[in-house]
Simulated assay, not measured.
Amino acid sequence: MKKYLLASLLTVAGFALSGPVSAEHYVIDTQKAHAFIQFKISHLGYSWVLGRFNEFEGSFDYDEKNPSAATVSVTVNPASVDSNFAERDKHLRGPDFLNVDEFATATFKSTSYEVTGDNTGLLKGDLTLRGVTRPITIDVTQIGAGKDPWGGYRRGFEGTTRLTLADFGIPTNLGPASQEVELFLSVEGIRQ
């Protein structure tokens, strides 16, 4: 399966952390589908459209002794958008929304991580979507970490954020209830 770079999101939304030399390096486990960038947006204020991005990759560094030094980098293929309806996905890939012919990747690169609790924090970084780069903040919760049954070591996080479509040059306006998209990110990293 071809890999493409994105964020978002994404995730998006993608993502975890990196820091000093003592930090552990993790690759996000997308090959075994242990990571997700999902979205939710109101459809005209009447219902919800839910979906995901099927192709993305990334990595993060994390040091338990210095979590504020965590970093993350994620690349997403926006053409992999999947809302469970082919005609809508075709529209989402077009110039009214993601314009994937002109902007083939979306990326997220963290700039800081602020610890807010025992397993929570605010991950800040730059999201580039449709050629527009803007700072975003992702509310992060560490789900857990430990050995896996195959002799490896894994660490997992989830995060949420909201994006205003117009901030990223998306021209379509579906009304006041549909101006923002919610992103839910779930990542499981394999320590390298």
Score class of each variant (00 low, 15 high):
T30N: 00
Q31T: 15
H34I: 01
A35D: 02
A35H: 00
F36C: 00
K40R: 07
K40C: 08
I41A: 02
H43N: 02
H43S: 00
Y46E: 02
W48N: 11
V49F: 01
L50K: 05
G51P: 04
G51F: 01
F53S: 00
E55V: 15
E55A: 12
E55M: 06
F56K: 00
G58C: 04
S59G: 13
S59W: 13
S59C: 06
D61G: 14
D61Q: 06
Y62A: 07
Y62L: 04
D63E: 14
D63W: 09
E64N: 10
E64A: 11
K65G: 13
N66Y: 06
N66C: 05
P67D: 09
P67S: 11
P67Q: 11
S68G: 15
A69D: 15
A69M: 08
A70S: 14
T71L: 12
T71A: 15
S73H: 05
V74E: 10
V74G: 15
V74P: 04
N77W: 03
P78W: 00
P78Y: 01
P78M: 02
A79P: 05
S80V: 08
S80F: 03
V81S: 04
V81M: 04
D82E: 11
S83R: 05
S83D: 08
F85T: 04
E87P: 01
E87H: 05
R88D: 06
D89P: 03
K90Q: 11
K90V: 07
H91S: 06
H91M: 04
L92I: 14
L92Q: 05
D96Q: 12
D96N: 14
F97W: 06
L98M: 14
V100P: 02
D101F: 04
A104N: 08
A104G: 05
T107Q: 10
T107S: 15
F108I: 14
K109H: 12
K109E: 15
K109T: 13
S110K: 14
T111C: 04
